[in-house]
Amino acid sequence: MSRIREAFARGKAFIAYVTCGDPNLETTRELVHALEDNGTDLIELGIPFSDPTGEGPVIHASNLRALDGGVTTDHIFRMIVELREEVRIPLVIRTYANVVYSYGTERFIMRASEAGVDGLLLSDVPFEEKEEFAPICRRYGMDMISLIAPTSKERIESIAGEAEGFVYCVSSLGVTGMREEITTDVSGMVELARENADIPVAVGFGIATPEQAAEMAAISDGVIVGSAIVDLIERYGEDSAEPVAEFVREMRRAVR
């Protein structure tokens, strides 16, 4: 069984996002350990991009902090190699198409796979463009994660039908970021995805509180939390491992 499958086999999954190199790679390393030690089932590792058009202000700013710190794709691969000596949970790289394309798509995926990465999520690569990346991921034993959104409607069938790893269900319109309430019919989307995919469906975008996490976990196989964690990293910088661990413990309890 792949590491991603295992992550969902233990029950509802808690998935966390961090941007690599925000504020530096040493902190990212500490955060990954803190996340795993406090019950995170899968980590999305963001490779920062200059113009992350799918992100709200919190993750956008985090990308820029990481770039200011001077992090490169190769630094991040090296960090993942070292992390993999101890970290057991699945790691998914989350970034934008140009970061991969400009590195050389096959070279990027090969290096990621060698470093121990389990999946690739590209925010600006929809179903129609994924054939440029997905078959190469498959060849190197990685899953290309597909997203469905509130506007997807009839597209959910084909997207979920070809999805790998898990289906990422985007809870709301707009970009990433914390939201006071989620008004979309998420459970309808999750149901439609489940009818067409035999892999887990996790919900992300806007989940910032234990209440929201519990609600979304109840109707899906897991929740993805990004901006709420990155917000703590923005506030605590190099000392963010402890506050993030505390937040994750609380969210983890809500998701069980």
Binding site: S123, P126, E129, A149, T151, S152, R155, V170
Partner: peptide
């Protein structure tokens, strides 16, 4: 090359 939200 856009997020899924914009495809439809």
């Amino acid at each position: 090359y856009v997020p899924e939200t914009l495809m439809n």
